[in-house]
Design a binder for these strands. Sequence first.
DNA 1: GTCTTCATGAGAATGATTATCGATCACAAT
DNA 2: ATTGTGATCGATAATCATTCTCATGAAGAC
Lengths: 136, 136
Amino acid sequence: MTEQPQRRTTRQRTAIREFLSGAGDFRTAQQIHEQLRAGGDPIGLATVYRTLQTMAEAGDVDMVRTADGESAYRRCTTSGHHHHLVCRSCGRTEEIMAKVVEAWAATIAAEHGFTNVTHDVELYGLCASCGARTVT
Amino acid sequence: MTEQPQRRTTRQRTAIREFLSGAGDFRTAQQIHEQLRAGGDPIGLATVYRTLQTMAEAGDVDMVRTADGESAYRRCTTSGHHHHLVCRSCGRTEEIMAKVVEAWAATIAAEHGFTNVTHDVELYGLCASCGARTVT
DNA sequence: GTCTTCATGAGAATGATTATCGATCACAAT
DNA sequence: ATTGTGATCGATAATCATTCTCATGAAGAC
Ligand SMILES: [Zn+2]
Ligand SMILES: [Zn+2]
Ligand SMILES: [Zn+2]
Ligand SMILES: [Zn+2]
């Protein structure tokens, strides 16, 4: 068996978890670091990166890549596998379940003889309120 | 109207285009730079980055993000909108058309009042030959 | 309280991508 | 063929997110 290193509850880890629970949208490590500090929570940047990575691997948070390649994290309410519909303007995020897509992915994989297939599926657009205030 | 700067045909741009036409899979700017030079084609790294970006914006090449966040480019044979099924091991890439997914994305967007929605859909797995030589 | 081990964080290191900016080159017009 | 002009090139410096280092601090078990 692979010995999993024991995991401790520290002030920093709690702070990050709570911060993400409060924020509804995706945040980058840099943002989280800055905002936690601004809120009077002393924390190191390296710690933020480490913790987010660990949480992501454990499935406690979801990760996406922003348009410019940064990693952004979010604490989702849906426990299982799901996808996101993100507002390009305000960051508002909806969690999406997609049986159709899951089935499609499996079919395509089989058709091409691929195994062990995972997928990356995210939707980006303008939410109702942001779309409304945009000039056509 | 927005005046588009006129585009010139240079040795470097041709080299990159031909290189990508020859390679069937996704390559990063760094890889392309290195391999072109190794092949006796003097070219600057900045030029490679610039050219790839321009080509991607013009739709001449497709771009994806590798697992570690680098941008990789590929010259696809399919002209219109499509997705990819990429082998995690050897990089072999299949182009995929997915009416189901397009329809699904549109529906989801509408249901949530989102407009101007784009999507990001890629599949990663092990191709037949790579899967075969893997220990179960 | 003591001890063992994991966690932290300041700062250095890494590495991809972008910006600079003078020298070159493509190409249309003469 | 020559020339004029603006696009393009490229060596190198600058940016900037992310990772590494390692001495110090703190959690949890007994
Ligand atoms: Zn919005
Ligand atoms: Zn899915
Ligand atoms: Zn393969
Ligand atoms: Zn599509």
